[in-house]
Nucleic acid binder design. Structure first.
Length: 418
RNA sequence: GGAGGGAUCGCAUAGUGGUCUAGUGCGGCCGCCUGCUAAGCGGUUACCCCGAGAAAUUGGGGUCGAGGGUUCGAAUCCCUCUCCCUCCGCCA
């Protein structure tokens, strides 16, 4: 959420900034609503102050009279009418503010859509093959490690099952990534709930705008997490953190659930885009001064996973038109997949500034007597399982159809013979 | 799922319709004192919103788990919900 004071004081800056996203928003409407909210609030508070004084007077029995009582009752009615108006204005305003995306960081390149993204670096050389490399769906079936048919039998399209060492490889990757981030990168491991309350989805920015892409248990009003970013954003909701504990670095493995309504018909082949997938997520809470620096560390930690797995990749900086709703700056990591012949997004690392912290009300105090401030939050995949799985199969495939695993995984594949 | 108990300013507790501008203790912070990481003394100690101010600051309003209600007036009475604890039932 954007700071209403920023909109109030610098409406032109906000308008210009949001236009960079290639979308239009009614900032003037927000300003009008804000003005009437404050007007009704002030009226209400003035009346309330008067009412309070008279009430104090009345605490003395000798001051009481039927006339005064009557007058105060009328006043009370006026106050509650004003109160109703005020809270309606407030919630209308809030509802509009919740629909505004974050302001792009000044360092983000301008662009209307994904075509404006910039490759900032590449690592490794795409492998060359003496044979025609197969796509992972063929490899997966030949090796009998991905079962598409039974996944569909159980749950319908966009579901699959991993079998035998396919399942084992996924488990090994999860352990490998968690260990690397915990032991070598200094993150604290969290195992969060996979279902959360509505407020959490609002806090992270998934609601109210993107409910279409979420699974929801209507009976109990539980929302299934589309990423661990959601519970991690809300982990410290309504808390005031000590400055000394920042930055906080969390890593969480979760399954992620996405309806993929917006991507209907896209990427239907293979395991690239399913309704359920696993992911190891990195998350940081920092003070505002350090968030730019922490974003660079975050992307480096995610890249390290790809490097240890010796998978060639490129880092892409998203342009203003391709930024996610909550992000002010984002880098993606894309792995090269020689079988399906495309770059696969395995990580998206974003600085969200105070956008989510304001929604989730996560603050910190910089010094003992200082005012509270919102923290900055950052998130990044470290990394998404199905796509790194694809990249491993396709990059490490041999002429005979077998796959030789990267060395980094050897300690994690103890049941390899099975 | 059933029955009971509870939720107060970091922690612990007081408060059962107006004197609560929420008291007290502990902890924290600041200062003083003291020949030692003790004791003592004084002060301070929540958060949000609106207004004034360049700012330090300052005027007002709100918040006693959340939301509603009764009342001139609610931490206190009533209703609903959430969470925690105890017991019973069921269950990985």
């Amino acid at each position: 959420m954007l700071d209403i004071k920023l909109i109030r004081e610098n409406p032109d800056f906000v308008k210009r900034s949001l236009e960079k996203r290639n979308e239009n928003f009614d900032i003037d409407g927000i300003l009008q609503l804000d003005a009437s909210y404050r007007r009704s609030l002030q009226q209400q508070e003035q009346l309330r102050a008067q009412h309070k004084k008279m009430s104090k007077q009345m605490s003395n029995p000798s001051e009481r009279s039927p006339e005064l009582t009557l007058q105060m009752r009328q006043m009370g009615e006026e106050i509650s009418a004003l109160q109703e108006e005020t809270s309606k204005n407030k919630s209308d305003l809030e509802n509009l503010l919740l629909l505004l995306p974050n302001i792009p960081h000044e360092s983000v390149p301008l662009g209307n859509d994904a075509s404006g993204n910039i490759v900032v670096r590449t690592w490794g050389e795409p492998k060359t093959f003496a044979f025609k490399p197969l796509p992972h769906w063929e490899l997966g079936e030949k090796l009998d490690i991905i079962d598409f048919q039974r996944g569909v039998k159980l749950s319908g399209s966009r579901f699959y099952a991993l079998k035998g060492w396919g399942a084992h490889l996924q488990r090994a990757l999860i352990s490998f990534m968690l260990d690397t981030h915990v032991i070598d990168h200094g993150y604290q491991e969290i195992y969060p709930p996979f279902m959360v309350k509505k407020e959490c989805m609002v806090g992270s920015g998934n609601l109210p705008k993107f409910g279409d892409n979420l699974y929801h248990d209507k009976e109990e009003d539980y929302w299934f997490v589309p990423t661990a970013e959601v519970p991690l954003t809300n982990f410290h909701r309504d808390e005031i953190l000590d400055a000394e504990c920042l930055p906080i670095n969390y890593v969480a493995y979760t399954t992620c659930f996405r309806r993929e309504k917006m991507a209907a018909g896209k990427d239907t082949r293979g395991i690239k885009r399913g309704h359920q997938f696993d992911k190891v997520e990195l998350y940081k809470l920092t003070n505002p001064e350090n968030s730019d620096k922490e974003l660079e560390k975050l992307i480096a930690d995610a890249e390290d996973i790809c490097q240890r797995l010796e998978l060639p990749y490129r880092v892409v900086q998203l342009c203003t038109g391709d930024l996610g709703f909550a992000a002010c700056k984002t880098y993606d990591i894309e792995l090269w997949a020689p079988g399906c012949n495309e770059w696969l997004e395995v990580s998206s690392c974003s600085n969200c500034g105070d956008f989510q912290a304001r929604r989730a009300n996560v603050r910190y105090r910089s010094a003992a007597n200082a005012r509270t401030q919102f923290v900055h939050t950052l998130n990044g995949s470290g990394v998404a399982l199905p796509r790194v799985f694809i990249a491993i199969l396709e990059n490490y495939q041999q002429a005979d159809g077998t796959v030789v695993l990267p060395e980094a995984l050897t300690p994690y594949m103890k049941a390899r013979q099975s």
